[in-house]
Design a protein around this nucleic acid. Structure first.
Length: 108
DNA sequence: ACTATGACCAGCG
DNA sequence: ACGCTGGCCATAG
């Protein structure tokens, strides 16, 4: 971990850290939320940040837009998500039920 | 300043 | 469902 992460990195980690157990967000969704706050970034950039600093947050709760898990960490991610009760459809996460958006915290 | 490289994504065949 | 293409934008050399 670098001495002083850029503001962007902090924002990304902050959003990921807020994802509740048993739910997931896609890189694109995280990107959108962070973009609202910092005005910059993209899904791809979020992926780059996760690859570097993901170890400090629940990285397994961030998946690709089609439910695929992060390359090289499929096994570990599947194990953790399954343990949290996330539903799968084959090797992919069942996004229809697991997808989470920060607004859900506000009310139902 | 420029080029190359990604834990991405939507569109198209 | 699968592979390719073009767009995306911060990082690294």
């Amino acid at each position: 971990v670098p001495d002083v992460p850029s503001e962007y990195v902090e924002q990304v980690l902050d959003v990921v850290d807020a994802i509740p157990a048993g739910r997931v967000m896609t890189y694109g969704m995280v990107s959108d939320v962070v973009r609202e706050r910092t005005g910059s970034g993209s899904a791809r950039t979020v992926g780059a940040v996760m690859a570097q600093y993901g170890e400090s947050v629940p990285w397994h709760r961030v998946v690709a837009s089609d439910g695929r898990l992060p390359p090289g960490h499929e096994q570990e991610a599947t194990r953790r998500l399954t343990g949290e009760g996330v539903a799968f459809r084959g090797v992919k996460v069942a996004l229809a039920t697991a997808r989470w958006w920060p607004d859900e915290d506000a009310g139902t």
